[in-house]
């Protein structure tokens, strides 16, 4: 979520509550005979309020499972999740008096710390990653379709090179028909809409086309495999540009269009690869945040039951 002016109310509200909690906590610590304790009335109050806020923050996951329930807009829940979740941390610290306590509470505090840090990391990533994706991946598509689109790109490139150099004698499994990346773009000069290419017309064979064929089979085609991730030359835009420039020098003008098409295809492939990478960054932190949050809530509940019962 992008943190902007619309969060001002939440930030001020949380700061006011934090200030009030601090105003209660400081005299409480000063006057407590045995130091602050989670079992005291004030400590327990901090604990209850803090845990309640944690539960609210955790309820976001449940809320997302029932998106049509009219129990508040998605934005309300997300803002609440961020700011109340953040607020719960100092309250829980007040509850424990800034001490780790026994083994269970120590684990709880460590978990809580990781959850908070991963959450903050997530918020930070959400500030940056969508913008990066917007600028770096103009041909962005639906994430789940990336692999099949890469297969499409490879199939088209095979056809293109075969039309220029003769049969490639490689296995080309039929690519699933998917919507192509990008949809359509406006105000982005030089980055036109990515559309499936028409079947190319065969070109007259030339002796130099062997160069293109070799470069395609050794450098370009492996890069267009959705399962292969590392390829030094094509991955680096500068090195890729050099390769294509060399190809243009070596090949007759008749084949320059083919080279340009391949260059554009590789650029699209690179963008889709970037999209995948950015997507992993954008959502990867959730692999830590969500399970640990669940564990935190579970252990927190156990801690509450044990503490109140015994």
């Amino acid at each position: 979520m992008l943190i902007d002016r619309s969060h001002r109310g939440w930030i001020i509200g949380c700061l006011v509550v934090l200030a009030a909690a601090t105003a209660i906590y400081v005299p409480y610590v000063r006057h407590a005979l045995n130091g602050p304790s989670g079992g005291s009335a004030v400590g327990l109050t901090f604990g209850v309020v803090g845990f309640a806020l944690m539960i609210f923050a955790g309820a976001l996951g449940a809320r997302r499972k029932v998106p049509t329930w009219q129990i508040g807009r998605g934005t309300f829940w997300m803002r609440g999740h961020i700011w109340l979740g953040l607020l719960s941390f100092p309250l829980i610290l007040f509850h424990g008096g800034f001490r780790l306590g026994g083994p269970l509470t120590a684990v709880l505090m460590i978990l809580f710390g990781i959850v908070i840090v991963s959450g903050i990391l997530g918020v930070l990533l959400q500030q940056v990653m969508p913008r990066l994706m917007l600028t770096r991946v103009p041909l962005e598509t639906v994430y789940e379709q990336i692999d099949s689109i890469v297969l499409q790109l490879r199939g088209e490139s095979d056809e293109l090179v075969a039309a220029a150099c003769g049969p490639l004698l490689v296995d080309t499994p039929p690519a699933p028909a998917e919507r192509r990346a990008g949809g359509g773009l406006v105000d982005r000069v030089g980055q036109p809409r990515s559309t499936p290419r028409a079947h190319p017309a065969p070109l007259a064979p030339t002796p130099e086309s062997a160069v293109l064929r070799d470069a395609y089979l050794t450098e370009i085609r492996p890069f267009l495999d959705p399962l292969v991730h590392g390829n030094g030359v094509m991955l680096n835009p500068a090195r890729a540009a050099t390769l294509f420039r060399e190809l243009r020098t070596a090949l007759p003008p008749l084949l320059h269009n083919t080279v340009s098409e391949l260059e554009a295809t590789c650029d699209e492939r690179r963008q889709l690869r970037d999209q995948k990478r950015l997507h992993h960054w954008l959502h990867g932190w959730l692999l830590v945040h969500i399970p640990l949050s669940l564990a935190l809530l579970l252990l927190g509940t156990a801690h509450a039951v044990i503490a109140l019962r015994y």
């Binding site: 979520m1 992008l2 997302r64 049509t68 969508p130 639906v142 919507r179 954008l282």
Partner: peptide
């Protein structure tokens, strides 16, 4: 797209509101 985190919650909501079939891509 500067705000969207590509979480697909919109698609899921659309599907939930229309008997499991999304009308939004």
């Amino acid at each position: 797209l500067e705000r969207c985190t590509r979480c697909d919650q919109c698609v899921r909501a659309c599907a939930a509101a229309h008997d499991g079939v999304t009308r939004l891509v």
